[in-house]
Design a protein around this nucleic acid. Structure first.
Lengths: 216, 216
DNA sequence: GTCTATAATTCGATAGAC
DNA sequence: GTCTATCGAATTATAGAC
């Protein structure tokens, strides 16, 4: 009388890609749930229900709730990693590359706004152990790609050697994070005209940072 | 049997400066309460109790809970405004001034960490009307001082004219905000060595931004 | 502090793919 | 037969009420 075990029972009116596996549906459902209610309020039972699988299936694919959470964010980070590789592999002048990076990065966090908010909420939490894994296991890979690019440009003599590549990278990221977090209110800062022009903002930041670190 | 009404009845074990007025004690108590539990969870009754005044006294000094909240943050902003004037009025090379500004600003938000966290929590809230008043009525004054300084340096021919002063100012602020928000986890970013060296971080940012916008 | 409800996690078994 | 995805039931941890 039971459904064949490899077929989803019911997916509670949520839509999922055709032919998606249980694991894929779980990642999607978890992403939605975590984004909507935050980590602690999210329940494994609800996620399993929405994904149309049994609760124990969750633990077959992910060792724990924490790991599921990391997997959700990791997926978004991987997607950005793809774009990042594309941006950094094109051989052009470093300013152009930094501009591209900055624009793609802001687009990415705005497209994944819910997850981005979730991550930021986590980082704000003082002393969060999850935040540490998040940075170390998930975000650091993409961060290294950017700072690695800057370091390489320094090796080629295009960039000052007395500035830590990681610091320059972090400065660029901070600009995007603030823009994303505070976009609605930035328009009320006197003299700031770019609140509704993300592309101009990313261009401006890349420009300042590049000229700030270029070899003169 | 009751205490004379113009003398604080009881201040619930909290300490306040000697001779402080009811209004002053209210600001202090409100600052603590808002910081601890956030805006919506804070209760006027509790704040009044802690300040040792009646609840109606609160509404004598502040028209609403919102206004009390803004007054709390405004006070911290005013204090920073004092320091800011001191930094900007010293006549020295702009790089030195920017470095000083950046260092004082980070010190200020770290000293007022609870309030800063409160403000940031507010800005994160999507579509918060309070966040708009906050930026327009409280934060914009100090922001204008910084961007005004940069604009002036541009007039003196020390700074590129093709960069909006407000954008450069915002970039500097974003660096401090991220550092403050994520300090605990930045140490786990590969290659970033300044997580426990705030002075080096502010110096580095000021340096990059200055060279990024200086007239070459 | 105990009691209880809720949520996280583990266990054992089944069904299908190769 | 082994391997993997699945489920239902049983077990533990946790948080709040009393």
């Amino acid at each position: 009388m039971t459904q064949p075990s490899h077929v989803p029972a019911s997916t509670q009116g949520q839509d999922f890609p055709d032919g998606s596996s249980g694991r894929e549906r779980l990642l999607i459902a978890a992403s939605r749930e975590f984004s909507e209610v935050g980590f602690s309020a999210a329940s494994i039972a609800t996620i399993a229900l929405k994904a149309g699988v049994g609760k124990s299936t969750v633990f077959h694919h992910f060792a724990s709730k924490d790991e599921l959470y990391l997997a959700v964010i990791n997926q978004a980070a991987q997607e950005f990693g793809q774009q990042l590789d594309a941006v950094l592999s094109v051989s052009q002048d470093p300013l152009q590359t930094l501009e591209n990076f900055q624009a793609r990065h802001l687009e990415h966090i705005e497209r994944n706004a819910e997850i981005a908010r979730l991550v930021l909420r986590e980082l704000l939490e003082p002393g969060s152990e999850r935040a540490v894994s998040l940075v170390r296991d998930v975000l650091s890979a993409n961060f290294s790609r950017l700072s690695g690019f800057i370091a390489e440009a320094a090796d080629r003599g295009l960039i000052r050697k007395d500035v830590e590549p990681a610091s320059a990278a972090l400065l660029m990221l901070s600009a995007n994070v603030l823009f994303f977090q505070a976009r609605q209110v930035l328009a009320h800062l006197p003299g700031f005209e770019l609140a509704d022009k993300p592309a101009d903002w990313t261009g401006c930041v890349a420009d300042i940072v590049f000229h700030g670190i270029e070899q003169s």
